[in-house]
């Protein structure tokens, strides 16, 4: 089979109509996973529905309380938005790593999330920032935390007629910053062997008052490691606290051995990455404080 139909709705309601008739359909945002999947025979939709002509889906909006990233907004647009990279430098790090400049120009955070690769770079960063998914279905809208949106390797929580509209990230409170790091053999053009996204909040005294740590490529889905966050809460992010967080991260990891790395290696490295990401986030907070 080959793609039989390409449609390009210009509104959410048109999009819902396009998916409604039971034809095997795929949403197309940046296409950097979908088109590779079709090429390699892993995906076989009869209809492709392009989402990029729907204004809500490519918009990036910043208000008092939240940043809203349209599900089809390209990583490049997010990276060059006037607010997002400065508010979420860790998310920007993750989006920048998704692929080459060519890929970043097309791929979207929403698509990266829907593709739900265990190694996706943006997912730990989104989870660390407490991002929520706004989902539109035939029966209306629902909202889901990113960590609940990914349900398995390349599996998300969307029903076949549902559509991810946007990602909502609560704006960071003062003294908050995030960071994302991954390990790949090459500097670019690679898939994470392990990844760690963190977001922490520190008060003026240097005490950690909030923390979220998420890890990627070490389990069937990206994981929010609550025990790691607990280890940091109330601490001065001293070595003991960081060691405890790293231990929690490693305990949570349950990776596989594959062509990209051994389980043992991944468990070790995800801890290293978490610890370094924490140091980066802390340095960012310190810089903002000073």
């Amino acid at each position: 089979m080959a793609v039989q139909e390409f449609v390009s709705p210009t509104s959410l309601s048109e999009a819902q109509q396009a998916v409604g008739d039971g034809t095997a359909s795929s949403w197309l945002a940046g296409g950097t996973d979908l088109l590779v999947g079709i090429r390699l025979g892993a995906r076989d939709p009869a209809r492709v529905i392009d989402l990029k002509q729907i204004p809500e889906l490519t918009a990036i909006q910043v208000d008092e309380t939240a940043v809203r990233i349209g599900a089809a907004a390209s990583a490049f647009d997010v990276l060059h938005n006037s607010d997002v990279p400065s508010q979420f430098p860790g998310l920007a790090e993750a989006l920048n790593l998704i692929g080459s400049t060519q890929i970043t120009g097309r791929c979207s955070a929403g698509g990266n999330l829907c593709n739900a690769s265990p190694a996706a770079d943006s997912i730990p960063a989104l989870i660390a920032n407490g991002a929520k998914c706004r989902i539109l279905g035939p029966d209306g809208e629902r909202t889901l935390a990113v960590e609940d949106f990914v349900v398995g390797p390349n599996q998300n929580a969307l029903a076949s007629s549902e559509l991810l509209i946007e990602l909502i990230l609560p704006r960071p409170t003062p003294g908050t910053s995030d960071a994302y790091l991954r390990l790949t053999p090459r500097t670019e053009m690679d898939i994470a062997v392990a990844g760690a996204g963190v977001s922490i909040t520190m008060d003026e005294s240097g005490e950690c008052t909030a923390a979220r740590i998420a890890i990627g490529a070490v389990a069937p889905t990206a994981l929010l490691v609550e025990a790691a966050a607990e280890a940091l809460m109330g601490s001065q992010l001293d070595q003991t606290a960081i060691d405890a967080a790293v231990a929690a991260v490693r305990a949570a990891a349950r990776p596989i051995c594959d062509k990209r790395g051994t389980a043992e290696y991944r468990i070790h490295v995800v801890g290293v990455l978490a610890s370094r990401a924490l140091a980066n986030a802390r340095a960012r907070i310190k810089k903002a404080h000073s």
């Binding site: 088109l35 390699l40 392009d50 390209s74 060519q102």
Partner: peptide, 22 residues
Amino acid sequence: TGDCGACSVLVDDRLVCSCLVL
């Protein structure tokens, strides 16, 4: 498959792999 860049073009001034654009 988007991995080599030999097919790079600009679409509305945006650098993309033309093998990953319909």
